[in-house]
Design a binder for these strands. Sequence first.
DNA 1: ATATTCCGTTTAATATAATTGTCAATCGCG
DNA 2: CGCGATTGACAATTATATTAAACGGAATAT
Lengths: 183, 183
Amino acid sequence: MNVGDKLRAIRKKHGLSQRELAAKAGLTNGTISLIEKNRTSPSVASLKSLLDAIPISMAEFFSILEEDDSAKVFYRAQELTEISPSHQGGVSLRQLGNAAHHALQVLHETYEPGADTGPEFLSHEGEEAGVVVRGSIEVTVDGAVSLLNAGDGYLFDSRLPHRFRNIGADPCEIVSACTPPSF
Amino acid sequence: MNVGDKLRAIRKKHGLSQRELAAKAGLTNGTISLIEKNRTSPSVASLKSLLDAIPISMAEFFSILEEDDSAKVFYRAQELTEISPSHQGGVSLRQLGNAAHHALQVLHETYEPGADTGPEFLSHEGEEAGVVVRGSIEVTVDGAVSLLNAGDGYLFDSRLPHRFRNIGADPCEIVSACTPPSF
DNA sequence: ATATTCCGTTTAATATAATTGTCAATCGCG
DNA sequence: CGCGATTGACAATTATATTAAACGGAATAT
């Protein structure tokens, strides 16, 4: 999200030091330092205090923040966001960018040995495709089964039931794309 | 702010239970319960996880939340928000509503014995007026000094330098209004 | 009636945000 | 230079958000 950089930019634009803003908001300069360096995620109440003191509304703040986010082009590995609920069953799905604002969703997927998505019966429209980057994986699409190795790929209609299982001994990595994005 | 009620309303509108939403967002149902009852203010990161799982953007969320706030008509005593930085010098300024969205700002002010705003040289346009509700207070406006008792009032141009001092032995309460709001 | 399941709430333990106090670096000003 | 004031950052403590695990109520099934 990068609340820190945006807060710092706005604070400086208004010619305030961390201490000045802290005094107005009823917080401390240390807190602002931590927030601006993204070493902590402020509570909604704290952030509101800060923005009220500038002043700028929460809606405005997140509006320009998310606008910036959707204009973002380059992403560091650590900036990909995990969208698999709590690494369920050794499956990691790391999404590039904020898919809600784009027509294209790209995932960096990792399947630990034994990982299994289970047979999902998704019904959303669109297509999915991917390339195996490392290891191997068994992919089932609408009954058809195939073992894909590094360099192999797949492409199918999202409405078809599909399943990924890592039956090998090593982790498997895939880079995939969906359009439109699915959640 | 009332993040809790709004989150609950949106969650229910999407037909989700606390547990369902918690699973999607990677949090726990207990956390959502506490947030919805406004017993805790979630971190920005936590709130974003919840909204992403619904899904709804932060900007959208606060946009409708603050819109609701500005439509609010009645306020309980505890809902007035303290705008005096950390009760500086025994002065408490409790604001009715979210002045940023209105043309009128009403304050419930309390001055402890000895409290003093100091000579402020505000330059914003507009007018200020108030009525002393309890105790007494010495008011200085552009050089003119007067001791006001319960029932007395004042009305002056905001651009004039003004000062409030409680030189009595009891706390003094005032209900005042400004237009347009000043911060 | 009596389990069974799902709901929201609550409590104690834990993780994390916020404060406090201090630091080195920077910027005027004499 | 040398000094005071101000800045942003950091470590250790305190306060608070979050978790994990239980509870009681309401609806549904057995």
